[in-house]
Structure formats: structure tokens, C-alpha cells
């Protein structure tokens, strides 16, 4: 089952003056349970593509369908609601809420979804357990290591039971030990729970673990390797 379908997707900056095609006519689909890495040199359009898939940015041309729903014509608040319900995000700089504890950060998404307190409690405990950070649940992000923060970020992304998780350079700020730990967790989630992950990355360790590697150059897919 396809969770993402992109058709002739383009993103053109400065269309009126000097047009720059950050993404150029990309057609792509991602199936449920894939563990996909989008790779390429800096400025090739990885983050732009991820942003359009996640409804954070709108395309200039083409269409984006997530779970069979076109998000192209949604307005801002519809997109926000859609992201909340269907897409999990993991950013490079962790991006946790600094004043909340690890547990509160995970529950934040579920509160936004108006989940009942009992379910929320159970789910956050379960996620903390699976991420191996149960002992750190009452610590604030500033009291956690980079790797631990990124695990909280993954837990937060999974809290809403999204259709897929978009991770923009999730290991860029991590040491090799933390990177391996994080990849182990994500790979396990992908294998055991069929959670779809799409990464944008430079990191060879991520690329090595990916089951599908899409290579971008100048906004164009130059290779799409299934492993």
C-alpha cells in the first residue's frame, strides 16, 4: 500500500526573476513499511523534498498524496491538522520543547490530538520503554545527551501513530555510538511494527541501513535503489 505518491513534483524559487528549480519534476511513491534514505550532496533538494512530503512547504508544480489524500490544495490550518494526525517529524536539532520533560514532550502531540489521559499515559510509558529512556522521563532536554534527545524526538514523532516518519538528517549531531543506537531503534520499529521511515541524510551509517536509497542531484532523482 502506497503511503506517499509524488507526481511530477517541482519546487521553483524566484519564479518571477531568476527561477531556481530546487526540485525538478520528481515522481516517486513510497510504500508502507519502507525504510528509505534520500541522499545527495548539500543543496541537492533533500530537505525541500522532505518538506513538501510533510506538508511544511508547498510545491510549485505537481501533486503530493499522503495515504491517498492530496495535500496540495489544503489550506494552512488543514495542513497543520493533517500533519498532526498523519505525519511524524524528527529534525536534525532534536527540537524538543525545552521547558517540558522527556515524557511531557512525548505527550505533547497526544494532548494536541485530544487523546484521553489513560491512553496517553500508557502510550508515553510504552514509547519511553521502547526507546530505552524510561529512566530519563522526568528530565528536561537540557539534561539529556544528544542521543537521548533524539530518541525522545523519535518517540514524539511516533506518539501520534503517524502513517510515516520524516527524519531530516536525524544523526547529523550525534556521535557514532548514539547514531548506531538510534538506528537500531528505528530499524526495529520498522521491522517489527512496519513503521515507514523516510530520511534525508549524508550519513553513510544511515545509508548502509536503508532498504531503499533515492539519490538526488540538482533536484532530480538520479537513482532509486531498492535493497
Amino acid at each position: 500500500m502506497k503511503v506517499i505518491e509524488l507526481k511530477n513534483l517541482s519546487k521553483i524559487y524566484n519564479p518571477e526573476t531568476i527561477p531556481v528549480r530546487a526540485i525538478n519534476d520528481v515522481t516517486l511513491s513510497v510504500k508502507e513499511g519502507e525504510f528509505t534514505a534520500i541522499v545527495g550532496p548539500s543543496g541537492c533538494g533533500k530537505t525541500t523534498l522532505l518538506n513538501m512530503i510533510g506538508g511544511l512547504d508547498i510545491s510549485s508544480e505537481g501533486s503530493v498524496e499522503v495515504g491517498g489524500v492530496s495535500i496540495q490544495d489544503m489550506n494552512e490550518s488543514q495542513l497543520t491538522a493533517f500533519r498532526l494526525q498523519h505525519i511524524g517529524f524528527v529534525f536534525q536539532a532534536y527540537n524538543l520543547i525545552p521547558v517540558f520533560t522527556a515524557k511531557e514532550n512525548i505527550e505533547f502531540i497526544m494532548v494536541l490530538q485530544n487523546m484521553d489521559a489513560k491512553t496517553m499515559q500508557e502510550r508515553s510509558d510504552d514509547l519511553l520503554d521502547r526507546m530505552g529512556i524510561k529512566n530519563q522521563k522526568n528530565r528536561r532536554p537540557s539534561e539529556l545527551s544528544g542521543g537521548q534527545q533524539q530518541r525522545v524526538a523519535v518517540a514524539r514523532a511516533l506518539a501520534a501513530r503517524p502513517k510515516f516518519v520524516l527524519a531530516d538528517e536525524p544523526t547529523a549531531n550525534l556521535d557514532s555510538g548514539s547514531t548506531e543506537d538510534l538506528l537500531d531503534i528505528m530499524a526495529k520499529l520498522n521491522k517489527e511494527e512496519k513503521i515507514t521511515f523516510i530520511f534525508s541524510t549524508h550519513d553513510q551509517r544511515v545509508i548502509d541501513r536503508a532498504k531503499r536509497v533515492i539519490t538526488l542531484e540538482d533536484g532530480v532523482i538520479i537513482s532509486d535503489e531498492h535493497r
Binding site: 510533510g54 490550518s77 491538522a81 498532526l84 494536541l112
Partner: peptide
């Protein structure tokens, strides 16, 4: 940046 993240992960601008 932080407000952008909140909006990105699903907190509406009104919230």
C-alpha cells in the same frame, strides 16, 4: 525557530 517547530509538528497557529 521554536514556534515554527510547534506549528510544524501540529500545533495550530491559533494555539
Amino acid at each position: 525557530y521554536e514556534l515554527g517547530i510547534l506549528n510544524a509538528i501540529g500545533m495550530t497557529k491559533r494555539r
